[in-house]
């Protein structure tokens, strides 16, 4: 067990996110889709959480609300003292800019920028960022940093996305199906990068997946189904990402 994990346990009650009775209804014209039906949740500083659930369970909606990409229909969610439910678009932009790192299923890199520049694009607009080369070193891509996305494999692209997300020294790292478009071997390399970022930088990390095997690497596993949290488990013993298999 590493020292950073000890750190987590020493200050376990420092709450980063707090959600109460969170609900989200998508108005699709004639039909209304209830994506979240009253969710209560806390995320703690430095922990790695896996949100597990089948598609349609509401996990992406939850992550989007936490990340300031979407707003809840009712209930409250706060980041430290900041009430995200009442924030304006400008405040949400600022929140994403300074506090949140995102990793997406399809990487969403800027094709016209090299790996280094994709990271630099974010560090240029943040306060107190890492050096782009340092962030790329965390994901093990120092030697590929002048490549354009088209010259990188899917796994490499996703690791650039992780470097880009952590380079601003975000308070939280939100990952939506980060291995969803990758084969298992590449997926594990990506998860190792996430694990390392979480461990070395102490960034609170939430990973969404429908792949139950990934849950073994988390501090806590939160299961969602049909818009509700159905179960929360704490892993007594986290498995390193490299030991995962699916």
């Amino acid at each position: 067990m590493s020292s950073s994990n000890d750190q987590v346990k020493q200050s376990p009650r420092d709450i980063v996110f707090k959600a109460r009775d969170l609900a989200k209804v998508y108005d699709m014209g004639e039909v209304k889709v209830q994506a979240l039906r009253g969710v209560d949740l806390e995320l703690y500083s430095g922990e790695l959480v896996v949100l597990l659930g089948p598609s349609g369970s509401g996990k992406s909606t939850l992550l989007n609300i936490l990340g300031g990409l979407d707003t809840a229909t009712s209930g409250r969610v706060s980041y430290h003292d900041k009430d995200l439910t009442r924030a304006s678009d400008r405040e949400l932009t600022e929140y994403r800019r300074y506090y949140v790192g995102f990793v997406f299923q399809f990487y969403n890199l800027i094709p016209s920028l090299t790996a280094f520049e994709n990271v630099a694009a974010v560090t240029e607009i943040s306060r107190d960022p890492m050096k782009p080369e340092d962030a790329l070193a965390v994901v093990g891509l120092t030697d590929r940093m002048n490549h354009f996305p088209a010259q990188l494999s899917g796994g490499e692209q996703q690791r650039v996305a992780i470097a880009r997300a952590v380079a601003k020294n975000p308070a939280v790292l939100l990952c939506d199906e980060p291995t969803g478009a990758l084969d298992s071997k590449t997926g594990i390399v990506v998860l190792e990068a996430l694990e390392r970022a979480n461990r070395e930088l102490g960034t609170t990390t939430a990973v969404i997946t429908h792949n139950a095997d990934i849950a073994d690497m988390a501090d806590r596993v939160i299961q969602l189904s049909n818009g509700f949290i159905t179960q929360v488990d704490t892993n007594e013993r986290k498995k390193p990402a490299r030991e995962l298999y699916w």
Binding site: R96, R97, I125
Partner: peptide, 16 residues
């Protein structure tokens, strides 16, 4: 639009 939306998600403002 996809690229620009990604940048928005990363914290770029509308102006940027």
């Amino acid at each position: 639009s996809r690229e620009l939306a990604s940048l928005r998600v990363l914290g770029f403002t509308r102006g940027e």
